[in-house]
Design a protein around this nucleic acid. Structure first.
Length: 737
DNA sequence: GTTGCACCTG
DNA sequence: CAGGTGCAAC
C-alpha cells in the first residue's frame, strides 16, 4: 500500500507538474485563444452574417435588413475594418471581399443553411433548369454554369438591390453580394470576373448616388443646426464666455463631425471630438445614420445641458431644474429658448430620421410587416458607441440584435423598453440580443416562472455576467435567464438543421465580455457531455450579491435541466430552492466545524431545502473541498510556524479558542462569530496541527504526497452534525441561541 | 463512465 | 470561492 501510494503519488506528482504545465497549457491555450480571439470574433460575425444572409435568401428580404446591413457595414468600416478585416487582411480585399474563405463559408453554410449551398453552386437550380443535369458531374461545366447563373442573377438584380444583399459587413464594399455569391465568385475565371466587376461598378455608382443625396441632406441639416447654434450663442456668448467656449467648440465640432466619416470616430473609441474635425469630408459615403442620429441627439442634450447650466449658476449647485425658482427674466428667457431649441432640434432630427429612412428604405422591396421597423432602433442605442464603450462589442451586439431579432420576433421587448430612457445607455440592453426566446417545453421548471415569456426579465438580465463589468447592480430578483446560457441552450433549435452551438466558438467577442463563469459555463454546455466529469463547475456562485438564490440558482437549474433532468424530481414544493444561497454557504461553513468530509447523502439531508441535482451536489462538495483546503493550509502554516518558534513536541501544541490558529479558522468559517464552535472542532484542529507538526518534523513533507496520510486521519474525525442543521431555518435557530 | 478528491490558479 | 485538471476508486 505505501509503495503503491508513493508510486502513484510520485506519479501523481509528475502529473502535478504536468498540471503546472497544464496551467501553462491553459495559458497557452489562452494565448492561442486570444490569438484565435480575433478569429473567433470574426467567426461570430460571420455566423451572424451568414445567418442573415441565409435568412435574406430564404425568408424574403425586407427593408430592415437593408438598413441594418448598411449600418453594419458602416460600423464595420468604422472599426477599422473590424475584426474581420484584421483577420482576413491578407486574404485581400483586393481580391474582392468576395474572397470569403471557402472552407469557412462552407462550414457556415453547413451550420445554418442548406448544405447544398456548400456542396455545389446548384444549390438553387430553379433559374437554370434548362441545363443538362447529366453534365453536372463535370466539374468544369459545373463551374461554368455557376458563372452563368451568377451573371444572370446579377443582371436581374435591380441596382438598388445591391443594398439588400451586402449584409456582409466584412468589407464587402466593392462586391456587396451575399456570401453565397462570394463563394461562387471564387470559382469564377477572370474573364467572367470582369463582367461581374462591371456589375459591381454599376452598383457602386448607384450607391454613390444615394450617398450624395444623403450628404446633401445632411449638409442641409448641418446648416440648420448651425443656425440654431448661432441663435443660441448670440444670446449666451455674452453672459459667460469662458464657460461656453468649450461647449461652443464642442457644438461646432459636433457639427463638423457630423459630416465626418464615422469610422474615424469609432476608431478612437467614440468621443474624439478633440478638434481634428476638419478632416476631409470627401468620404461622406460611409456616413452612419445611426451615428448621425446619435450626434444629433448628443447635440440636443448638450444644448439642453447648456441651458440648464445657467440655472445652477444662479441657483446654486442643484441639478434640479427648479422651475419655480426665483427665476430672473434672463433665466426664463433662456429656458424658453432652450425649449425652443429642443423642439427645433427634435423636429430637425425627426426630419433627418425620416430622410435617412426614406433613402435607405428605397430599395423596391415590398414592405412586409416585419418586426423590425427600419430605424425603430432608438438613437439611444448608439450613444453607447459614442460614449467610448467598446464599439466592437456594441456593434457586434447590434448586429446580433439586428440579425437575431429579424428572424425571431424580438424576444425581450427590448425596443419597447428603451425609448424614453434617453442617454441612459441601458447597458443590459446591449446584450439582449444574446437572448433567444426559450421555448416553453425547454424550460418547464420553476424557472419558467421567472418570466421567459413575461417580457419583464431584462431589468435584471444576466446579473451575473454584466453586473460586474458594467456596474449593474441587480435589485432583489427572481432572476431572469442567464443570457449566455440561453444563448447556448437555445441556439440549437435556431441554428438550422445541423443545429448546435459550434463548439469551437469558445471565445466569441460577446463571451469575452461576459463573466468568466457564464462564459465557461456556456463553453462547457457547448461541449456537451464532455462536461460530464467536472460538471460542478457549472454553477457560478454569486457570493457578493445580497439577494438569495441569485442567478446561480437558475444557472444551476439550467445545468441540472440540461444535464440530468432526472435528478430533480422529488422537489416541487414551493420551499425548495433551485440554487445555493449565501446562507447555504454560511450553513455549510458552520457544518464544517462538525464534518470535514460530508458525504453527498449527508449534504442532501442537510440541505433539504435545495433542489438537488448534480451541479448542486458538486458545488456543495466543492465548498467543503475549499473549506478543507483552507483548513489544511492553515494547519500546515501554523505547524511550520510553531516549529520555527522552537516547539519541539506536540504536547506543546494545543488549539484553544484564543489561539491564532483558531482565530484564523473561525474568521473563515464563522466570520460573524455568531456561532459557538464546538469543542470537538478544537480537538480535531489540534490533532490536525499535531499531525502536520509531526510530519514536518519527520521530514515527510519532502514527499509530495505527505499530506495524504494526514487526510486519512482527519477524515475519520468527523462528528455528527446536529439535527438543527437539517432545518432550513437552522441559521436563525443557531445564531439566535 | 461516474464520482470524489487534491492541487493549482485566478 | 470557483474553474480546471489529473487521478483513483467504484
Amino acid at each position: 500500500m505505501p509503495d503503491h501510494d508513493s508510486d502513484s503519488l510520485l506519479n501523481r506528482q509528475t502529473k502535478r507538474r504536468r498540471v503546472d504545465i497544464g496551467v501553462k497549457r491553459t495559458v497557452g491555450s489562452t494565448a492561442s485563444s486570444t490569438a484565435a480571439a480575433t478569429t473567433s470574433k470574426s467567426n461570430v460575425l460571420r455566423k451572424l452574417l451568414k445567418r442573415a444572409n441565409s435568412y435574406e435568401d430564404t425568408m424574403m428580404p425586407f427593408p430592415g435588413t437593408t438598413i441594418i446591413s448598411q449600418l453594419l457595414k458602416n460600423n464595420m468600416a468604422k472599426n477599422g475594418g473590424g475584426p474581420e478585416r484584421g483577420e482576413r487582411g491578407d486574404r485581400g480585399l483586393s481580391n474582392a471581399s468576395s474572397d470569403a474563405p471557402q472552407e469557412d463559408a462552407c462550414s457556415n453554410s453547413s451550420q445554418d443553411s442548406t448544405p447544398q449551398e456548400c456542396l455545389s453552386p446548384f444549390g438553387r437550380p430553379p433559374g437554370l433548369a434548362t441545363f443538362d443535369i447529366e453534365r453536372l458531374n463535370d466539374e468544369h461545366l459545373r463551374a461554368k454554369r455557376a458563372r452563368v447563373e451568377n451573371i444572370i442573377r446579377g443582371m436581374s438584380h435591380s441596382p438598388s438591390v445591391v443594398q439588400q444583399a451586402p449584409s456582409s459587413p466584412r468589407g464587402g464594399e466593392v462586391c456587396s453580394s451575399s456570401s453565397r455569391e462570394n463563394k461562387r465568385k471564387q470559382r469564377l475565371p477572370q474573364q467572367q470576373q470582369q463582367s461581374f466587376t462591371q456589375l459591381v461598378c454599376q452598383r457602386k455608382e448607384q450607391k454613390q448616388e444615394e450617398r450624395r443625396q444623403l450628404k446633401l441632406q445632411l449638409e442641409d441639416m448641418q446648416k440648420q443646426l448651425r443656425q440654431l447654434q448661432e441663435k443660441f450663442f448670440q444670446i449666451y456668448d455674452s453672459t459667460d464666455d469662458s464657460e461656453h467656449n468649450d461647449l461652443h467648440n464642442e457644438l461646432h465640432n459636433d457639427i463638423g463631425n457630423m459630416s465626418e466619416d464615422s469610422p474615424t470616430r469609432s476608431d478612437t473609441g467614440g468621443d474624439d471630438r478633440g478638434g481634428d474635425d476638419l478632416r476631409s469630408d470627401n468620404e461622406m459615403s460611409d456616413l452612419d445614420p445611426g451615428h448621425f442620429l446619435d450626434r444629433a441627439r448628443a447635440l440636443l442634450q448638450e444644448q439642453a445641458l447648456l441651458a440648464d447650466r445657467e440655472k445652477p449658476r444662479r441657483e446654486g449647485l442643484g441639478r434640479s431644474k427648479a422651475q419655480g425658482g426665483p427665476g430672473s427674466s434672463m433665466h426664463a428667457e433662456g429656458k424658453q429658448l432652450a425649449e425652443t431649441l429642443k423642439q427645433e432640434l427634435n423636429s430637425a432630427m425627426t426630419q433627418v430620421v425620416d430622410t435617412v429612412v426614406k433613402v435607405f428604405a428605397k430599395p423596391p422591396r415590398p414592405t412586409p410587416q416585419q418586426a423590425f421597423p427600419p430605424l425603430s432602433i432608438p438613437p439611444e442605442r448608439f450613444p453607447t458607441v459614442v460614449n467610448g464603450d467598446n464599439p466592437n462589442f456594441h456593434t457586434a451586439n447590434q448586429r446580433l440584435q439586428c440579425f437575431g431579432d429579424v428572424i425571431i420576433p424580438n424576444p425581450l421587448d427590448s425596443f419597447a423598453s428603451m425609448p424614453g430612457m434617453p442617454g441612459s445607455t441601458n447597458d443590459q440592453t446591449e446584450a439582449l440580443p444574446l437572448v433567444v426566446r426559450k421555448t416553453p417545453s425547454e424550460h418547464h421548471h420553476q424557472s419558467s416562472a421567472v418570466g421567459a415569456h413575461g417580457g419583464h426579465h431584462h431589468p435584471a438580465l444576466h446579473p451575473s455576467s454584466l453586473s460586474a463589468s458594467m456596474g449593474f447592480s441587480p435589485p432583489s430578483f427572481r432572476h431572469p435567464f442567464p443570457l449566455p446560457l440561453m444563448s447556448y441552450a437555445f441556439q440549437s433549435p435556431l441554428g438550422g438543421p445541423t443545429g448546435g452551438y459550434p463548439g469551437k466558438d469558445r471565445s466569441s467577442p460577446d463571451s469575452m465580455d461576459l463573466s468568466r463563469e457564464t462564459t465557461s459555463l456556456r463553453t462547457k454546455m457547448a461541449s456537451g457531455h464532455h462536461l460530464g466529469h467536472h460538471h460542478r463547475s457549472c454553477s457560478p456562485a454569486h457570493p457578493g450579491s445580497t439577494a438569495e438564490g441569485l442567478s446561480l440558482s437558475l444557472i444551476k437549474s439550467e445545468c441540472g435541466d440540461l444535464q440530468d433532468m432526472a435528478d430533480i424530481s422529488p422537489y416541487s414544493g414551493s420551499n425548495i430552492q433551485e440554487g445555493l444561497s449565501p446562507n447555504h454557504l454560511k450553513k455549510a461553513k458552520l457544518m464544517f466545524f462538525y464534518t470535514r468530509y460530508p458525504s453527498s447523502n449527508m449534504l442532501k439531508m442537510f440541505f433539504s431545502d435545495v433542489k438537488f441535482n448534480r451541479c448542486i451536489t458538486s458545488q456543495l462538495i466543492k465548498w467543503f473541498s475549499n473549506f478543507r483546503e483552507f483548513y489544511y493550509i492553515q494547519m500546515e502554516k501554523f505547524a511550520r510556524q510553531s516549529i520555527n518558534d522552537g516547539v519541539t513536541g506536540t504536547e506543546e501544541l494545543s488549539v484553544s479558542r484564543d489561539c491564532e490558529l483558531f482565530r484564523a479558522l473561525n474568521m473563515h468559517y464563522n466570520k460573524a462569530n455568531d456561532f459557538e464552535v464546538p469543542d470537538r472542532f478544537l480537538e480535531v484542529a489540534e490533532i490536525t496541527l499535531r499531525e502536520f507538526f509531526n510530519a514536518i518534523v519527520a521530514g515527510k513533507d519532502v514527499d509530495p504526497s505527505w499530506k495524504k496520510a494526514i487526510y486519512k486521519v482527519i477524515c475519520k474525525l468527523d462528528s455528527e452534525v446536529p439535527e438543527v442543521f437539517k432545518s432550513p431555518n437552522c441559521l436563525q435557530e443557531l445564531l439566535h441561541e
